[in-house]
Every structure is written in structure tokens, then in C-alpha cells.
């Protein structure tokens, strides 16, 4: 049973997910260490699937390791590297191994990763994959039409970028994914709160937020280098001038502090934004900062030393 599903059903709870990137080697402890920092503080954690088209431990293996370490996994699965046979196979495998949540997406293009010479698969797209998984679970059929004996029960999630053109169509796009079967959606980094609020308002008008819970992507910008990287090096991330000005306006040694302060303010505002069910934290290797960030934003209470036991 998915704890994330239960958390999303609890209307009074601001749901928090985080992200665990699998290691580039065969060390299972890399997952355990990250799990230790997050345990008890997040409702679930995404396990990325060769993120940015860089080869790493598989998301399925890392999801099983994360679950064993006491954090509920959300297994990411992309269409970049697998055809429809392999996608359905990994989905069934995940269900059999007790992975309770899946996050289905198209994936970054291989040309952006560490194997730019790789063959891009994209046999299905993200919407088709969500639709396929929903039919496997609810109708018990594969794309071939063949029946599944025991059906999977995962919670199905997806992603959306409210800030990427065609921006006017982005609410309709999530509506389409929700209609295809997505029950929750994590978004790209939210730095532009007014634009984000306009997007969620459109979603609420169309009744999408009732069927598909929106978890806003949030994370601190820790340095001017990271600011430059996010502004130009990551497809689809939009950092407004105001945020950039604030980070550039403080001495170099205080940039990280300012970045964390912006992140905390963003979390507070999101928690008060109608139609936002929670946040998806992207802290990349700084999992130990998650408890403090959540307490400062008054999203979670408690003493980490006690709660982490």
C-alpha cells in the first residue's frame, strides 16, 4: 500500500517528497546514507531514472534499496531508453518487488547526457506511458491486449513544467495527463510564484487539482555558479530576474544562506497557495538539510534527533 497515496488523501497534510539520485557505481550504501537523512521527514522520495541521460544504477534497483532503508520510493521511469516491452516489464517488476509509486515521464534527450551517441528510443511518450500504466492497473491489460493475472497497485505520478512554452497550453497539458491516469504531478523548479499561482488557478478552474495532486518543485540555489547553471544549462528552468538580483546582491559567502532563505519563503507561500497539495524538494546531495528546511518553513515540526530514530 502506498503511504504517499494515504498522505495525499489526508487533506490537512502538506505532502513532501524529495529526490534520491542513484549512484554511478554498485555501492548500495549510497542509497542507505541518503535514506537515513530523509526517513520520517518526507512522505516519499523519487528515485531518478538515469537523470539527465547519464548512466547510473537503475531506478528499480535503487527503489528497492531505498524501501529497505525505510523511505518509501517513487520509482521514476522514462521513455528514453526502453521500448514498450521493456517499459511494461519494468512496471510489472516494480509492482512485484513492492514499489508502491511510479512517476512516468518522457525523459531528457540522450544528446544532453554522458552518452550523446546513444540511440534515443521514445517508442512511447510520457502521456502514453501514463495511459498504459493506468490500464495495466485498472483494466488489467497490457498494450498487446493480453490480460495481467495479479494487477499492480501503484500510485501513478507524472511531471509538468508550468513555465515552458507554450505556457498557455500547460494547464491543459496536465489535464490531459490527469485524464490519462496521473494521480499526482511534480513540477519543475518554482521560482516565479505569481506565474505558478496563475497556472494552479487554471488547473482548479478545470477541476484538475481534485483528480491530480500538484506537488511544487522547490530547491535552494546554493551558489552563483548554480544560478548560472539553472538559468542557462538546464532545459525548462526559469529563474526570474528578482531571484537572481537577490542572490547577486549579497557577498559571495552568504549566497547559500540567501538561497536557503528564498527556498524557505517559497515553501511558505506554496503552502498557502490554493490547489498546491505539497512540495517536491530538490536538494541534490544535501539531504541532511531537509529537516531544518521543513521546520524553518513550519511545514513539519519536531526534533530531527528524535524523529530520525
Amino acid at each position: 500500500m502506498s503511504g504517499l497515496r494515504a498522505a495525499l488523501a489526508d487533506g490537512g497534510r502538506f505532502v513532501v517528497t524529495a529526490e534520491v539520485g542513484p549512484p554511478r557505481d554498485a555501492d548500495p550504501d549510497a542509497i542507505t546514507r541518503r535514506a537515513k537523512a530523509l526517513r520520517g521527514w518526507v512522505d516519499a522520495a523519487n528515485v531518478t531514472d538515469n537523470q539527465g541521460a547519464n548512466a547510473r544504477m537503475s531506478s528499480l534497483a535503487a527503489s528497492v534499496l531505498l524501501r529497505a532503508a525505510g523511505v518509501e520510493p517513487v520509482m521514476q521511469l522514462t521513455c528514453r531508453d526502453r521500448n514498450r516491452i521493456a517499459l511494461q516489464s519494468d512496471l510489472i517488476g516494480a509492482a512485484a518487488l513492492g514499489v508502491p509509486n511510479v512517476l512516468l515521464l518522457t525523459g531528457d534527450h540522450p544528446s544532453l547526457g554522458d552518452h550523446p551517441e546513444a540511440k534515443p528510443v521514445f517508442d512511447l511518450d510520457g502521456v502514453q506511458l501514463v495511459w498504459t500504466a493506468r490500464r495495466m492497473r485498472d483494466e488489467g491489460v497490457l498494450l498487446s491486449g493480453r490480460p495481467l493475472g495479479r494487477r499492480p497497485s501503484w500510485l501513478i505520478g507524472t511531471v509538468e513544467n508550468p513555465f515552458a512554452p507554450p505556457t498557455a497550453a500547460r494547464a491543459r497539458r496536465l489535464a490531459k495527463k490527469a485524464a490519462a491516469g496521473a494521480e499526482f504531478a511534480q513540477t519543475q523548479y518554482v521560482f516565479d510564484l505569481p506565474a505558478f499561482a496563475r497556472w494552479t488557478a487554471m488547473l482548479r478552474d478545470e477541476g484538475v487539482t481534485e483528480r491530480c495532486a500538484v506537488l511544487a518543485g522547490v530547491g535552494p540555489i546554493r551558489s552563483l555558479r548554480m544560478l548560472a547553471f539553472l538559468s542557462t544549462g538546464v532545459p525548462g528552468v526559469h529563474v526570474p530576474d528578482e531571484v537572481a538580483r537577490r542572490l547577486r546582491g549579497v557577498p559571495e559567502r552568504r549566497v547559500e544562506e540567501e538561497g536557503l532563505a528564498i527556498c524557505e519563503e517559497t515553501l511558505r507561500e506554496l503552502a498557502a497557495t490554493p490547489g498546491v497539495r505539497g512540495a517536491h524538494l530538490m536538494v541534490f546531495g544535501h539531504e541532511d538539510e531537509v529537516p531544518d528546511l521543513l521546520r524553518r518553513a513550519e511545514i513539519r515540526k519536531g526534533d530531527p534527533d528524535v524523529d530520525r530514530l
Binding site: E160, F163, A164, P166, R173
Partner: peptide, 13 residues
């Protein structure tokens, strides 16, 4: 990416 159901999230501003 031969997407048949709409744009990906990587479209630049």
C-alpha cells in the same frame, strides 16, 4: 523525442 501528445518540459523560454 517524437512526442505525439504535446510538448516536453524542456522547451526554452
Amino acid at each position: 523525442k517524437q512526442l505525439r501528445n504535446g510538448p516536453c518540459g524542456g522547451v526554452s523560454a
